[in-house]
Each structure stands twice: as structure tokens, then as C-alpha cells.
Write a protein that binds this DNA or RNA. Sequence first.
DNA 1: TGAATAGTTGAGCAAGTGTTCATATATTAG
DNA 2: CTAATATATGAACACTTGCTCAACTATTCA
Lengths: 96, 96
Amino acid sequence: MKLTELKAIQLAELFSALSDASRVRIIALLLEGEMGVGSLAEKLNMTESAVSHQLRGLRQMHLVRARKIGRRVFYSLDDDHVARLFSLGLDHIQHG
Amino acid sequence: MKLTELKAIQLAELFSALSDASRVRIIALLLEGEMGVGSLAEKLNMTESAVSHQLRGLRQMHLVRARKIGRRVFYSLDDDHVARLFSLGLDHIQHG
DNA sequence: TGAATAGTTGAGCAAGTGTTCATATATTAG
DNA sequence: CTAATATATGAACACTTGCTCAACTATTCA
């Protein structure tokens, strides 16, 4: 494996985006479909501010995308890599 | 996706293990085969101490395993999940 | 228009992380 | 035995991160 320093940094940033339990739980909820910030906050028992801060990071890493309708913003997973990373990660921690 | 808080934490810990460029580069080198701490340090241009500290975390997450021969310790990837997470991550950052 | 609602943003701070440096352990050589 | 080699470890410190709180924007409702 030959890996440029740039790609090492980008890979680390990608995994960083999934390296927090709150963000993991956000992803898990979005696996079921799109959801607004308030609903996420309620289900996660977090403030909307905290959720919004986390969504910002996920957006910047292109893991989620936002769709604005009126004053609501619905978030959903950006592409299927996210779900696959998620399920591969689950495999790893479940097995042994 | 129903996800217990425990599993969310464990997933986050797994991705945390890959959330640093030094560790990503260690993994990339180990994809080619096992390697000692000194060789890793040389190729990564890091001190042996820093590499050893990082390897400890990777060991604890079961991403690498150690094989001791004399006073040398050879590290290798623990299972294939690591390589798959790595290549899936590369897909994500490369595509767009 | 003004009040309420949904979400975003920046500052501030406590907690966590990665490195360096010094020291410690384990193994081998002489 | 002592000295050298390979790695591990703990403390310290700078840097980063995720939260709260307050203020802000944008939109809808009355």
C-alpha cells in the first residue's frame, strides 16, 4: 500500500467523522431515513445546538446531506459508503 | 438501525483508532506485511516511542497483533476487517 | 408588523489526544 | 557480570474536540 501523506490525512479525517458516539448514533438514525435536527435531538437526548454542530462536521465530510424545507432541515446519508463503513465496523466489534 | 449506546461507543472507538494520520500510515505499511517498530518508525519518520504509543492503541482495538521474536516485536494487521475498512475509506475520499 | 419556531453559529471551557523526553524492561553480545 | 539494542511506558505539555450558552438568521403564523 502506497499512500500519500495527503490521503492519509483525508482518510484520518473521514474516520474522525465517525469517531464519536453521538455522530455514530446520528448515522444510525439516518440509516432509517431522513430526519430533521429537532427529531434527531429528541431521539438522541441532545440539544439541537449540539446536534447541529455535529451535523456540520458530517456535512463537511460528505457523510450526510441537508435538504431544507421551510424552516426545517432534513438530513440524510450522503452516499452508500457510509452505510457500508458502518456495517463493516459493526462486524468487527460484534464478532470478536 | 437500532443501536445500543454500548455499541455506539464501541463503533466510535473503532473508528477513533483510524482517526489519526500516523495510525492510518501505520496500517498502510502493515497492509504489505508484518514490520518491526523500528522499521515503521524509520519509514514514517517518527520516533520509536511515538510509534510504540500508537501501536498500543491499535493493539487494544484488535486492529494489529504483535509477535515477539527476541527483542524485536513484529506487528501485523489483526484481521481482514481492517483492510476492508481501509479500502472502503479510500473509495469514499477518492470518488467525490 | 411582531412573536414563535427551526436551525445555525461563535465563544468559552472541560476533557481528551499525540507528541516528546526520560526512564524502565527485556533480550542479546561480549 | 556489563553494555548495547529494541521496545514499552509514564509524565508533561500543546493542541484538539464536544459540549453549553447566548446570540443570530430564516421562515411561518397571527
